[in-house]
Computed example of a mutant assay.
Amino acid sequence: MSFIDVQNAFMAHIRDPQNVSGPSHIEDRRLNIYRELFFNNIEGFVSSAFPVLKSLYNETDWQGLVRQFFVTHNCQTPYFLEISREFLLFLQFEYEPTPSDPSFMLELAHYEWAELDVAVCQSSDDYVPVYDLEQQALFFKDTARNLSYQFPVHQISADHLPTEPSAQPHYFVVYRDPQEEVAFLSSNPMTAMLLQIIEHTPGISFDDLVTQVHSQLPQFELAQLQAGAKQTLTAFVELGIIASKKRE
Rank of each mutant, 00 (worst) to 15 (best):
N58Y: 06
E59V: 11
D61H: 10
Q63S: 13
G64Y: 12
G64I: 12
V66G: 01
R67V: 11
Q68C: 13
T72I: 13
T72N: 11
H73Q: 01
Q76A: 14
T77C: 10
F80I: 14
L81W: 15
L81K: 15
E82P: 05
I83L: 07
R85M: 10
E86M: 02
L88Y: 03
L89R: 07
Q92D: 12
E94G: 06
T98H: 08
T98M: 14
D101Y: 07
S103N: 08
S103A: 02
E112M: 00
A114R: 02
D117N: 01
Q122M: 15
Q122H: 12
S124Y: 14
D125A: 13
D126H: 13
Y127N: 03
P129G: 07
P129Y: 15
Y131T: 15
L133E: 04
L133P: 03
Q136R: 10
K141E: 10
D142T: 13
T143E: 06
A144R: 05
R145M: 14
R145I: 05
L147N: 08
L147P: 10
Q150S: 12
Q150E: 11
F151S: 00
P152L: 01
H154A: 06
I156L: 00
I156P: 00
A158S: 11
L161P: 04
T163Q: 05
P165L: 03
S166I: 02
A167C: 12
A167N: 08
Q168V: 11
Q168K: 13
P169R: 06
Y171P: 08
Y171G: 06
V174T: 13
